[in-house]
Amino acid sequence: MTKSDQFYIDKVLNGEDNKYSVLIDRYKDLIFTLCYRIIKDKENAEEAAQDTFIKAYKSLSKFKGESKFSSWIYRIAYNTSLDKLKHLKRQIQTVNNIDINELNNNNIEQALDILESNELKDQIKNSIKKLNSEDAFILTLYYYEDLSMQEIAKITGHKANSIKVRIHRSRQKLMLILQNQLPKEILDTYGNK
């Protein structure tokens, strides 16, 4: 039976530092993914993920269990990644200025049919990478972690309504990017069916 996060937190706070590795193993991939969604560079994202776990360890005594440990550490990852991004001052090529009105119903129908019927892992990964850092972070929490808008609002410090609007707009952006990124051969193959 899997023991709860709180069980390991209590162990660490009682001096069993090595138990912290269980918590790291439990969250490392998701934390790294969240950092990568914001920073969009694997090396720096891994550094941010490490910093996140070290900061969480140092502040573990301040974790009162009022929220889930996962939400608490996602918030640390969010702030750490944004700080790292600011520090790097990287100009990430995202699609902030994309016009979602381009999401033409006729074209999107065809793109959606293709997307539903194809394994397009690489295209999907590239499309997510082109999303604005915060949008990609929010969508990951919403779709992958199934967090509610209120929970995401608490993690990011935005209002729930603004998260709702952001999710709506950013998934439309994602669809448009995906549509524009579909390989020509897939479009051709599908068009001939």
Binding site: A45, L115, I124, S127, I128, T140, Y144, L174, L178
Partner: peptide, 9 residues
């Protein structure tokens, strides 16, 4: 599906 398919890093 995209966020499931894209899988975790």
């Amino acid at each position: 599906q995209a966020f499931d398919k894209s899988s975790m890093e």
